[in-house]
Amino acid sequence: MARILNVNNLEKSYSSGSKQLKVLQDISFNVEERETFAIVGPSGSGKTTLLGLCAGLDRPDSGEISLCGTNINLLNEDQRAVLRNKKVGFVFQDFQLLQTLTALENVSVPLELQGEKHASVTARDLLEKVGLGDRLHHYPSQLSGGEQQRVAVARAFSNRPDILFADEPTGNLDAITGEKVEQLLFDLNKELGTTLVIVTHDIELAQKTRKILRLKGGKIVSKDISAS
């Protein structure tokens, strides 16, 4: 199976006053197509920074990242944005829905902006898949946290991404609702063949993925094959 994400010798620092704060050191790993992959570690271990680098939202100080067969180090901002729009989906902890749009519009508008002719039909189908067929015309304020995250999941899969990055996707949800959203991510991963990369502090969620990368203090402490 082909690699969809390849990370080699990644380093990242940020300025903190007069000091340089090393956030990631010598990070190397790869993710296969259609795989489920978790990045875990305590707060401050560099998980979210690593996710942003892998998705081309930020640039490393050194090291290489190949995403969907493209060395993103060589791309400018606009080229990376095009790659993300075509190949990448995102789910965030805080949903990031537009409050003035309905559930249907939150999923269909990004598709319309990309020139999708049947955006509304695609959005409706996805919202039905995530169990929100009767909530199409509700605004985010009229939806529960779990329902908002399901809208966000539908939006993330709307462009049929090759890879989906989920940053603490159940972090703002209660345990039961969180489990439903988790199952949704794994079901869509199987159904649509999308590679799933999850950043989480939840070990139980991580153990549902095929591979687990553990970070501590910006360094890899282990790479595990999950028993699940």
Rank of each mutant, 00 (worst) to 15 (best):
L21Y: 09
L21T: 12
V23L: 09
V23I: 15
V23E: 02
L24F: 02
L24P: 01
L24E: 01
Q25A: 08
Q25M: 06
D26V: 02
D26W: 10
S28C: 08
F29V: 04
V31Y: 07
E32F: 07
E33G: 01
E33P: 01
E33T: 11
E35A: 06
F37P: 00
A38I: 06
V40F: 01
G41I: 11
P42D: 13
S43M: 07
S43P: 11
G44L: 09
G46F: 12
G46Y: 10
K47A: 00
T48Y: 11
T48F: 12
L51Q: 06
G52F: 11
A55M: 00
A55H: 09
A55P: 01
L57G: 04
L57C: 06
R59H: 05
P60Y: 09
D61C: 05
S62G: 02
S62Q: 09
G63W: 00
E64N: 14
E64R: 15
I65A: 04
I65M: 07
S66T: 13
L67S: 11
C68L: 03
G69L: 06
T70H: 04
N71E: 12
I72T: 04
I72M: 04
N73K: 05
N73S: 10
L74K: 15
L74E: 15
L74R: 14
N76D: 15
E77G: 01
Q79R: 14
Q79C: 02
R80T: 04
R80G: 12
A81I: 03
V82Y: 08
L83R: 10
L83A: 03
R84L: 05
R84V: 00
N85G: 13
K87G: 00
G89T: 07
F90L: 07
F90T: 09
V91C: 09
V91D: 13
V91N: 04
Q93D: 12
D94A: 14
D94Q: 14
Q96S: 07
L98F: 15
Q99T: 13
Q99E: 14
T100R: 14
E105C: 05
E105A: 14
N106S: 06
N106V: 06
V107P: 05
S108K: 08
S108P: 01
S108F: 10
